[in-house]
């Protein structure tokens, strides 16, 4: 398993989770956990995914997600889990 974290931040609207998971499904990325909140009107979602069997390479997937985010008016990014692990866990 190779874990990555997807974060989506932006103005709430219908279909954000659908937009993201559709891309993940098309690229064979498995979702392990989702949590979301609305903080001061801002939609904030964090998704932990397994990219081990992902059909595209990391950079391509990152670009596809970012592009989808632009179309939906939110910021979507994907980062390897290790950056968060190393900063917040000893």
């Amino acid at each position: 398993m190779k874990k990555a974290i997807i974060t989506v931040i932006g103005k709430d609207k219908v279909g954000i989770i659908y937009g993201v998971t559709k891309i993940l499904s098309e690229n064979n990325v498995n979702v392990l956990d989702i949590s979301q909140t609305i903080l001061q009107g801002m939609f904030t979602m964090m998704m932990i995914v397994d990219i081990e069997k992902c059909d595209s390479n990391f950079e391509a997937l990152s670009d596809i997600l970012a592009k989808e985010g632009q179309e939906m008016g939110v910021e979507i990014r994907i980062q390897l889990e290790s950056i968060f692990e190393s900063m917040h866990r000893i």
């Binding site: 974290i5 974060t7 956990d33 949590s35 909140t37 904030t44 964090m46 932990i48 889990e81 950056i83 968060f84 692990e85 900063m87 917040h88 866990r89």
Partner: peptide, 10 residues
């Protein structure tokens, strides 16, 4: 597991 607040802090 990493939580939302830690992710957002980073």
């Amino acid at each position: 597991m990493i939580n939302k607040y830690e992710t957002l802090e980073t």
